[in-house]
Simulated assay, not measured.
Amino acid sequence: MTALRPERESDTSYGQQSYGVPGAFEEWSGGGAYGASPQPEPHASYEPVRDESFLPPVDEETVALRLPDPPPQTGGSTAGSPASHAAGRGGSAEGGRAARRKAAKRRHGRHGGAADTPSAAPAGSGAGSRSGAPLSRVEARRQARARKPGPAVVASRAIGEVFITTGVLMLLFVTYQLWWTNVRAHAQAGQEASSLQNDWASGKRNPGTFEPGQGFALLHIPKLDVVVPIAEGTNSKGVLDRGMVGHYAEGALKTAMPGDKTGNFGLAGHRNTHGEPFRYINRLTKGDPIVVETQDKYYVYKMASILPVTPPSNTSVLNPVPPGSGFTEPGRYITLTTCTPEFTSKYRMIVWGKMVEERPRSKGKPDALVS
């Protein structure tokens, strides 16, 4: 039972020491301090001795009874020992209420919730970085390695950049070949045609023979809306790439001039790029006019036949009487040669025509150029 202990005479004879304090609760198990049941004396005074050194700590929070905290499960301490009771009440026999509060904060956080630690976040959720907590050096290195692209990614990026650069360069080259060369060639050919017409209008005479690259006539193909200067020679840079057509006038490939009484007037021109004056000669049909304009005369030819494909080495197409043209005897012929298929130079396409009219300029333009 729990009761107040009366003061005994023996207590005063040894320095007024007391083994009981009013308000304290003690556990008795069958007797006094060593098992003997105390018997209060009839004449004993019940005034308590207030020795402050033996007062228990005052609970500032409440004076009511409360259940002690469950004792910690540690080795070397039993549930019934004084140490376990002290640990259960406050976590420390010496810390008191302040120690219990600190322990509660450590266990449950400031507001009784789960501790706000990075370990509370799921692994890989990145909560530590979002909450502003600094990363450890190892974790920072790991994240840096994860962000760094691997060798395969770097290689694929390099290959992609090479492909893109190559594609851009090819696009620029195609644009240059298909568009810019035509623009430049048309300008050069137009300038040469204007120069010829000015010379003819001013009465300036040209010699009967011409230097390589020198313009001396104009070719008209009314059906294809083509008007292009004719220059001496078939050199690419000096003649053909400047948008003009060239006269075969060198070596074994030398052909006749339009004013000759008999012969084959052979011309070459680009089918694609650099002005492409012969691009659509495959559309000519039998009887279509082809006109050569010189300083003195107009020479009118009628388209006679076409050879769609032949090897570049077939120079017989320039003969005075070319085989395969349908001509059987010497006459005044014209031969147009160009590359085929389009955008290649693997084969040659041949168009032949026969002169049907020689008209002086003083009589005006021929009907083929008037209508």
Score class of each variant (00 low, 15 high):
residue 218 L to Y: 08
residue 218 L to Q: 05
residue 219 L to A: 13
residue 219 L to Y: 08
residue 219 L to G: 08
residue 219 L to I: 14
residue 220 H to S: 07
residue 220 H to F: 12
residue 221 I to H: 04
residue 222 P to Y: 04
residue 223 K to V: 05
residue 223 K to E: 12
residue 223 K to H: 06
residue 224 L to K: 07
residue 224 L to H: 13
residue 225 D to M: 09
residue 225 D to P: 15
residue 225 D to G: 13
residue 225 D to C: 11
residue 225 D to Q: 13
residue 226 V to S: 15
residue 227 V to C: 03
residue 227 V to H: 01
residue 228 V to G: 10
residue 228 V to A: 15
residue 228 V to I: 15
residue 229 P to F: 09
residue 229 P to E: 05
residue 229 P to N: 11
residue 230 I to Y: 00
residue 230 I to E: 00
residue 230 I to R: 04
residue 230 I to G: 00
residue 231 A to F: 02
residue 231 A to Y: 04
residue 232 E to G: 07
residue 232 E to A: 14
residue 232 E to T: 10
residue 232 E to L: 03
residue 233 G to A: 05
residue 233 G to F: 05
residue 233 G to I: 13
residue 234 T to D: 03
residue 234 T to Y: 02
residue 235 N to Q: 15
residue 236 S to E: 08
residue 236 S to K: 14
residue 237 K to Y: 08
residue 237 K to C: 06
residue 238 G to D: 15
residue 240 L to H: 07
residue 240 L to I: 10
residue 241 D to F: 06
residue 241 D to P: 05
residue 241 D to A: 12
residue 241 D to K: 03
residue 242 R to G: 09
residue 242 R to N: 11
residue 242 R to E: 10
residue 243 G to R: 06
residue 243 G to K: 08
residue 243 G to V: 15
residue 244 M to Q: 05
residue 245 V to S: 00
residue 245 V to A: 01
residue 246 G to Q: 14
residue 246 G to P: 07
residue 247 H to K: 11
residue 247 H to D: 02
residue 249 A to S: 13
residue 249 A to W: 10
residue 250 E to K: 06
residue 250 E to W: 11
residue 250 E to A: 10
residue 252 A to V: 14
residue 252 A to I: 12
residue 253 L to W: 04
residue 253 L to R: 03
residue 254 K to T: 15
residue 254 K to F: 13
residue 254 K to G: 05
residue 255 T to N: 01
residue 255 T to W: 02
residue 255 T to C: 00
residue 255 T to S: 00
residue 256 A to K: 01
residue 256 A to G: 01
residue 256 A to E: 01
residue 256 A to T: 03
residue 256 A to N: 03
residue 257 M to C: 09
residue 257 M to W: 09
residue 257 M to Y: 07
residue 257 M to D: 03
residue 258 P to N: 02
residue 259 G to P: 02
residue 259 G to E: 03
residue 259 G to T: 07
